[in-house]
């Protein structure tokens, strides 16, 4: 049975900004935690046939992430972009993504990375699945087919949990699941040659302006400031043995070692 897979990806900011985040192609990149999920999507498609569609919400400057997904081997990319979406928190983002995914339905499998390297909440995958009312397994490390369903594994503490997931279902893929492939030069050239972007704006989605952006966000970032790391260097005196003993004593005292 061919699979229709949708994967949600994000262009993350590469470095912590001072103040307001300015997204350009130079400051953004595909979220590294999305790469293993893209790899999983491509492999499942290559085994079963079907298509992989990558969906991303954000300004057009973040389209670099979508091109990279295309270069890796994704079939279609959809950018959901609208000025009204600025300021969306994870809940508003999940509202938008679930609305876009409804437009792209039917689908069999919805994939996410476990989290993003910039905001690091890990909430969008689970929230979007809940809004779409489909089953979800998080932190998946292996996926195998069992007739119409999937058997998935997730590692938790000292255990491996196994779930059987009915389709359509959602998975967040753990970064350790797979080594993602490098984009080939052929892939990059083809990605930029095809211009096969589908652009969705708010009016393409069946949601209201109040549900997105600042208005639709129950959480708000009030302030953001860089953490000032206060480090000081102290030289421990004495013979090598004395220095080692003193170092161990201090590390114990500070609770860093047992």
């Amino acid at each position: 049975m061919p699979l229709n897979i949708i994967i949600c990806i994000k262009a993350v900011v590469l470095e912590a900004p001072d103040g307001k985040v300015i997204r350009t192609s130079e400051t953004c990149a595909l979220n590294p935690f999305d790469r293993p999920a893209i790899e999983m999507a491509i492999r499942l498609r290559d085994e079963a046939g079907g298509t992989v569609t990558a969906v991303s919400m954000g300004p057009e400057s973040g389209s670099l992430a979508l091109y990279e997904a295309l270069a890796m081997g994704v079939d279609h990319v959809v950018l959901v972009s609208d000025p009204s979406l600025a300021g969306s928190d994870t809940f508003a983002t999940s509202t938008v993504l679930s609305a876009a995914i409804r437009k792209l339905a039917p689908f069999d499998l919805l994939l996410f990375g476990t989290r993003t390297s910039d905001s690091d909440t890990g909430q969008v995958g689970p929230q979007t699945s809940v809004l779409l009312d489909i089953p979800l397994v998080t932190g998946v490390t292996a996926v195998t087919r069992k007739k119409a369903n999937f058997i998935v594994e997730r590692k938790i503490d000292e255990f491996i949990e196994e779930y059987e997931v009915a389709l359509p279902g959602a998975l967040t893929i753990h970064a350790s699941a797979l080594q993602p492939r490098d984009a080939s030069l052929m892939g990059l050239e083809t990605a930029y040659g095809q211009e096969q972007f589908t652009l969705m704006t708010l009016k393409d989605l069946d949601i209201l302006a109040e549900q997105v952006g600042d208005n639709g966000s129950p959480t708000k970032i009030i302030n953001m400031q860089r953490i000032q790391k206060k480090r000081k260097c102290e030289m421990i005196q004495g013979s090598v043995e004395e220095q080692a003993e003193e170092l161990v004593r201090r590390l114990k005292e500070a609770g860093h070692i047992g």
Partner: peptide, 16 residues
């Protein structure tokens, strides 16, 4: 340079 070139550099740099 275009954004394609940015991506080419990033991709090749990461590999190397």
């Amino acid at each position: 340079l275009t954004t394609k070139h940015t991506l080419v550099r990033r991709s090749v740099r990461a590999f190397c």
